[in-house]
Design a protein around this nucleic acid. Structure first.
Length: 793
DNA sequence: CAGTGAGCGAGCTTCCGCTTGACTT
């Protein structure tokens, strides 16, 4: 044991640093926060100056006892946690928990994991910054109060087990409001006119008219007016332009680019980045900084000069503009810039390649272009055509990498125009006026949501991925794809003095992996907006961040800030609990023509439903659940009425009744005592006998196909094809076959052994139970039970 | 595996931000 103990947050970081320091230093890791407010209750003394009651996190007991042992033997303890609010707090919690003697404690910080930076840090130790620690305590206490006072309001007024918080509730709100914008969006159409012209060498010049026409009539009038016209070049304008590379990756921009270029989900990107980090291939992946170390700048320069030449290199220092950035780390970059490729899985290679290119490009010269704009006119007609082109004169960083963008566009980007000059006559090869519908605002993808949250200063690099999974787990939002719909659009084509009109099909509205609000998400958001608007305001976080900064600057005392907040907030909680009834997001759809009673759509205890009659009536109202794809916000009376028609007899098959109905697991067909789910894309209201028979037949075939093998000796055992490879199905339970066993060759005996082995290892039959071998001190008597709700996909 | 939807009240749920692993049908 060395006489110096250094503590950092991440074990991978510890490993690297240990190499830089001599044998007198032992480097250990805290694995993040070690102490926190226990989750069982609010753990803040609300009457007594908001004193937090911290406790060592249950899964950190072991690491704390190891750190304690090591710190006893050390002469000095160097707390080298990150230089930001959370890092300072971790250092303080460590000092407190390990009971470190003040004379032995040294606080050091570094922003880059380079030998120089670390040795320099060791030369310049400082004290703990208690003001910064207090800013973190304020942040922690505020989040706890908001989360643990708001959630119970939802339990009582909306539904049990719901959650609300400073971050998650705003994330859900963004998605709910975007969906409302889309619902309220009126698509209008106009006519875009494009043409292809040819010069004397028969080279094609594509162009667009300078205006769009409001309707078909105006478009037609225009086409008529140029039916027999001649076209000529009125002007050729050339302008130089440049394009600059994007800054190096932060967590948020990496997530966005990996989604656009590689199709990775936000959590997938983080998992792969973590693997690269642990393998020492990239720097830390949870960062809000675009800064590169001098070492990296030098390495990039050398790499660029040797690969592309001196003229391609340009050293650039980027500064962060994102709100609330704390910049404790470097940007995400390759650990060694001269390593263009790495060993690893396909996805690791792809992500590394992206990071390498982005980093290198950020240190390259800008691209130089010449943009050309040609105006093409017709005698006696005021509208004119514009052809745009772009010629790259020096590719610069484009040689390596270009950032993608979510929206299409880039007029004439990279398009080269044929040579023409003023006065040249051009021949029209065809002019078309095509109806264009305006597009509703786009739905958020995971990465787009992260981008928006970052803009609002909400959430941190370490939480972007968890936020997205939390609000999905809570069933506030869902990630879904939707098939396109088709509509007819008008095409008017003028060719050789002849105008042809046609109606063409256009696909629109297809969505891939976008975020949609659920009814629950909408209702909860509306509730919070009505009663706690200031908490889920988009600038709430930005405002409290300013106050945290004041605490960190020593201008205010943290208890005061929290006291001021609580004085306003808590009465809203008690007020809402006392004076409001249940909130179900009820919406009146109309009147039932049969009973003349009102029909409502609302959130019931089992999800969204429609209801005929009032809840207060003596006669119980009738209820029916909404189908997938329907929502409280958008369902109309007619659709509601058809939901009350189930269960519905639709005919007979083989002498037995065929019935369509809606159950716990969605719509189904029932026949001869068996149930067959109706796929989501089929509307159960429209299912008739023919289609029902098809559904039955299809299900039977599919079941047949998933069976890999059966055994004559024991028909209860089946080998099945599953998502995670072949598995054994036996008496309603599943057992993975294991990679070693070939489903074609395995014997019945071996299969029985696998079943027996698994049943014996887990006699309860419950899967995924935690191996909590460590007894948890005092709380040992209070058994913490995990909810046993198997998650459905 | 294919109903249920009130009200009462047992006992439970819940936050954000640091970290890394575990493991499915």
């Amino acid at each position: 044991m060395g006489k110096n103990l250094v503590i950092v947050e991440s074990p991978a970081k510890a490993k690297t640093i240990e190499k830089f320091l001599g044998k007198d230093f032992t480097v250990m890791s805290s694995y993040g926060h070690v102490r926190d407010l226990p989750k069982e209750d609010i753990s803040i003394d609300l009457e007594n100056n908001f004193e937090p009651k911290y406790k060592v996190l249950p899964d950190k007991e072991k690491i704390i006892s190891e750190l304690k042992k090591a710190s006893k033997n050390a002469e000095f303890i160097w707390l080298a946690t990150d230089e930001d609010r959370e890092g300072e707090a971790i250092a303080w919690h460590l000092a407190e928990t390990l009971n470190i003697d003040k004379k032995k404690l040294k606080r050091i910080v570094f922003h880059e994991i380079t030998k120089n930076a670390i040795l320099q840090a060791i030369e310049n130790p400082r004290e703990l910054n208690y003001k910064l620690v207090d800013a973190q305590q304020a942040r922690r206490v505020l989040d706890r109060i908001v989360g643990y006072e708001l959630s119970p309001v939802l339990w009582k007024k909306v539904k049990p087990s719901l959650s609300a918080g400073r971050v998650q509730s705003v994330a859900v709100r963004l998605i709910v409001e975007r969906e409302e914008d889309i619902k309220n969006f009126d698509s209008v159409s106009d006519f875009k006119v494009t043409a292809e012209f040819s010069n004397t060498k028969n080279e094609i010049l594509p162009a667009e008219l300078n205006v769009r026409f409001e309707g078909e009539r105006q478009a037609l009038i225009y086409l008529e007016s140029v039916k027999d016209s001649s076209f000529s070049v009125d002007s050729v304008e050339k302008k130089p332009a440049t394009r600059k590379p994007a800054p190096p990756f932060t967590t948020s921009t990496l997530q966005q680019e990996a989604a656009r270029k590689l199709g990775f989900s936000v959590s997938q990107t983080m998992t792969i980045a973590q693997q690269l980090y642990e393998a020492g291939q990239i720097t830390y992946m949870r960062t809000d900084s675009v800064n590169l170390s001098d070492l990296a700048l030098g390495a990039a320069k050398k790499e660029i000069e040797s690969q592309f030449g001196k003229e391609y290199s340009k050293t650039r220092k980027y500064t962060t503009k994102s709100k609330g950035a704390q910049e404790a780390h470097e940007a995400i970059r390759p650990a060694y810039l001269n390593k263009k490729n790495i060993e690893g899985t396909a996805t690791q290679k792809k992500l590394y390649d992206l990071i390498w290119k982005r980093t290198i490009a950020s240190q390259m010269e800008e691209a130089k272009m010449e943009k050309t704009q040609v105006q093409i006119v017709t005698p006696n007609v005021k509208e004119f055509f514009i052809a745009r082109g772009e010629v790259i004169q020096f590719d610069g960083f484009l040689k390596v990498y270009e950032e993608s963008s979510d929206d299409e566009g880039g007029e004439g980007k990279g398009k080269i125009l044929p040579q023409v000059k003023k006065g040249d006559n051009l021949k029209s090869e065809g002019i078309s006026a095509i109806q264009k519908f305006s597009l509703h605002p786009p739905r958020y993808s995971e990465a787009a949501l992260v981008k928006k949250l970052e803009e609002l200063g909400i959430g941190r690099p370490s939480t972007y991925a968890p936020i997205i999974s939390t609000i999905q787990k809570r069933n506030y939002i869902v990630k879904e794809s939707r098939l396109p719909e088709t509509r007819k659009i008008v095409h008017l084509i003028l060719k050789k003095s002849d105008i042809k009109r046609s109606l063409n099909n256009e696909n629109y509205g297809s969505e891939k992996n976008k975020l949609f609000p659920t009814d629950l998400g909408s209702v909860v958001t509306h509730f919070l907006k009505e009663f706690f608007n200031d908490i889920i305001n988009y600038d709430f976080t930005a405002n409290v961040e300013k106050e945290f900064d004041e605490i960190a600057d020593g201008k205010v005392e943290w208890h005061k800030t929290i006291g001021k907040f609580y004085k306003d907030f808590h009465p809203q909680v008690t007020e809402t609990l006392q004076n409001t009834g249940k909130y179900h997001g009820e919406r009146l759809l109309g009147v039932d023509p049969e009973s003349k009673k009102n029909i409502y759509a609302k959130l019931g205890p089992y999800g969204a439903m429609v209801q005929i009659g009032e809840s207060s009536d003596e006669v119980k109202p009738r209820f029916a659940s909404l189908l997938k794809g329907q929502s409280i916000e958008t369902i109309v009376l007619e659709e509601a009425l058809s939901l009350f028609k189930f269960p519905k007899k639709i005919g007979e098959l083989d002498g037995e009744e065929v019935i369509v109905s809606i159950g716990k697991y969605g719509p189904y067909v029932r026949h001869a005592g068996k149930f067959y789910s109706i796929p989501a894309e089929i509307d159960p209201c429209a299912v008739e006998l023919n289609e029902a028979c098809e559904i039955i037949q299809l299900k039977k075939e599919k079941d047949q196909n998933n069976i890999l093998r059966t055994f004559e000796e024991d028909t209860e055992i089946q080998l099945m094809k599953g998502r995670y490879g072949p598995y054994i199905k036996y008496k309603g339970k599943n057992y993975p076959l294991g990679k070693k066993n070939d489903p074609e060759k395995v014997t019945l005996e071996e299969v029985r052994d696998i079943v027996k082995a698994k049943d014996e290892s887990k006699p309860s039959g419950k899967t995924g139970s935690k191996p909590s071998r460590k007894t948890v001190g005092k709380t040992g008597s209070k058994t913490i039970k995990k909810k046993s709700s198997p998650k459905k996909k």
